[in-house]
Design a protein around this nucleic acid. Structure first.
Lengths: 207, 207
DNA sequence: TGCATCATGTAAAATGTTACATGATTGG
DNA sequence: CCAATCATGTAACATTTTACATGATGCA
């Protein structure tokens, strides 16, 4: 997969300009699956035009100069080739909240703070879920059978996340659990390690 | 969030070397949330040592030279600061399969091929799910209450995905649906656009 | 008139990956 | 003894974002 394929796909839905694409990423449906900046979009379009994948038509919409791109035969070809290729398995999502939770215990952070993080996430995910629900019946966007399946996927994923958040918050409001599995006694050693580091700091400052 | 924070977190779990971290990303639990290469890990560790966030101890494990890193007081501090900061909302996941589905209709691809893609994905996701289930009771890895919640999250997400795949395959085996929402008649215009592009190609070749 | 939005583009800076170089040790 | 794995590191390369430059139009 590459940016070029996403660009090709967007144009296949509807001929559009670089600016239109950016809007699609920021406010449209494509934004849920990818993000792209102007500094990336324009040079790519330029290159793709040189390669004969897309063709620009100088269009003037409401008197505003605009370069609207359409796919060439070669562009349709390339898009089709990509679609048929076996999709790459998604690379791990770098999720700040989850990553923090992984280290929450050893760093000895307060449970209350983590609950707050989860509540914030709940609000944000809920907003996004509502946005997607609106989106597929907003009367403006193109939604075919395949798009609908993608939207269902994202909704399902969001709903599963919200359920999990609810349960996680409930659990964290209760008493802390002991480690489930800790064959090397890391949770025990960890406190000593941290204290040692802090001690060393003190003695250095005393010098 | 940055790589430094992930590195700090990994060391907080257990003092380790650059090589250990890579292994953790490839085969351990951290790999589900992030990926990192040697070319990224080593320079970062070097920089972080200079900045006083970590300290290297020349350790020899089984006669093999090894640089094991431990957090300094400043390192613990920095980790703690990051953990308390409001987590960034995860950036859109660039999922090849979903992206392809978004463009499947306009490109006029065959439904059978998409079903195959979904079946492959089902197998891969199923393998990953089994791996995670094993992981939390493999007798080797550290799993505390927070880690367990993260693992539950990933499992929930995977199960939701597998359910969705099942339903999607069923639907695609049936008759195609008409677009749910298409205010600008894109699906109608699209065929003409593609044909026009292909025609132009032919006439060019004839010259 | 002046600010927000539309619209395109470039160059510098940041960031990360791939490929390579190096060398020790374990196990078949 | 030779291949695989352990282990660290660098430099070239690829890619992307950020910041900046430019200019037109709509509207208050």
């Amino acid at each position: 997969m590459s940016i070029d394929h996403i660009v090709l796909g967007l144009i296949s839905l509807n001929p559009c300009s670089g600016y239109d694409m950016k809007m699609e990423f920021e406010q449209g449906g494509a934004g849920m699956l990818s993000a792209l900046s102007f500094g990336s979009i324009y040079p790519h379009l330029k290159q793709m035009e040189q390669d004969g994948l897309v063709a620009a038509v100088q269009a003037d919409e409401n008197g505003r100069r605009k370069k609207v791109y359409e796919l060439t035969a070669q562009g349709w070809e390339e898009l089709s080739d990509w679609l048929e290729q076996r999709p790459a398995y998604p690379i791990p999502m770098r999720d700040d909240l989850l990553l923090k939770m992984l280290f929450w215990g050893t760093a000895g952070e307060e449970r209350e703070k983590l609950i707050t993080h989860l509540q914030v996430r709940r609000t944000e995910s809920n907003d996004l879920l509502n946005y997607i629900r609106d989106w597929q019946s907003n009367g403006k966007s193109f939604v075919d059978e395949y798009t609908e399946l993608v939207l269902t996927y994202i909704q399902t994923r969001m709903e599963a996340e919200l359920n999990w958040i609810e349960k996680a918050i409930e659990q964290l409001k209760g008493e802390p659990h002991l480690p489930v599995q800790d064959p090397h006694w890391l949770s025990v050693l960890q406190k000593a390690r941290k204290n040692r580091a802090l001690m060393r700091e003190e003695s250095t400052q005393e010098e």
